[in-house]
Design a protein around this nucleic acid. Sequence first.
DNA 1: AAGTGAACCTGAAGGC
DNA 2: TGCCTTCAGGTTCACT
Length: 295
Amino acid sequence: MPELPEVETVRRGLAPFMEGRRLRSLTLNRPDLRFPLPKDFRGRVEGRHVVTLARRAKYLIINLESEVSIISHLGMSGSFRIEEVDGDLAAFHHPRSKDAAHDHVVFGMVDDRGAEARIIYNDPRRFGFMDLVETGELDRYPAFSLLGPEPSANMLSADYLAARFATKKSPVKAALLDQRVIAGLGNIYVCEALHRAGVGPERLAHTLVEKTGRPSRQLEELTRAIRDVIAEAIEAGGSSLRDHIQTDGSLGYFQHRFRVYDREGQPCVTPGCNGLVSRIVQSGRSTFHCPVCQR
DNA sequence: AAGTGAACCTGAAGGC
DNA sequence: TGCCTTCAGGTTCACT
């Protein structure tokens, strides 16, 4: 579920309920998620104010006062929801009923007027995890130090991708899923970006680089497509924030704009293309693409 | 060294 | 209704 745009949507949804508020209580309903929860987790965060919510790739970062940061990764099925303890803002009530058996971590927040809210982390498959680091050490956090650039406009260029792809013999689909190359793309947005750029998922990454080392026209298209699809997806998640906070990590409204993902057998939407969306498996994961207009 | 596939875990959906 | 198989938005680890 959560690729970069979904995590960013979660960050924006949680921020009003966490930033500037005090984390009064932390409840752990089990000792581990994918990994053991941090040692003395409660003792190190309870009573502290949340300064900011940040995001790096698919990681949510809760910066607390006294230079302590909680790192949260949602894995495949992780989500946050907000329950206002005493509130009258019915609009924020979560639309979907969750299995409380998978409510693993609860952040009890209180603002300076005493208004309370519970931020509840639910994760049936428990592929997610949480960790605790000193804020100044975030850049050295092992999972972060290897990450490639964010796919935002100023961080990602065709020249950069050309340099990374030049010696890569794996299919471009796999190369784009590699978080060391670009941080934050997942299966959905890789499929979507490849389709927008008209690049076949099985193309070997190095074939998108000219002999001179310059990016090919198609690689420039792909770079643009990656930036566009991520920006649009964040926008779509963001727009849904206005009425219903998307703190469940669901796709907001962007799922209605999928051009290939989960559309096997349906007509390709590229103007003038008469192809049908096809599903193949690459390194164990579904790839949706149009064999006619993606080359 | 790089690239592929299995493993981690639960639930939903489809076939019979 | 129920049982079985397949699949799912991610990452890591063990093999070629």
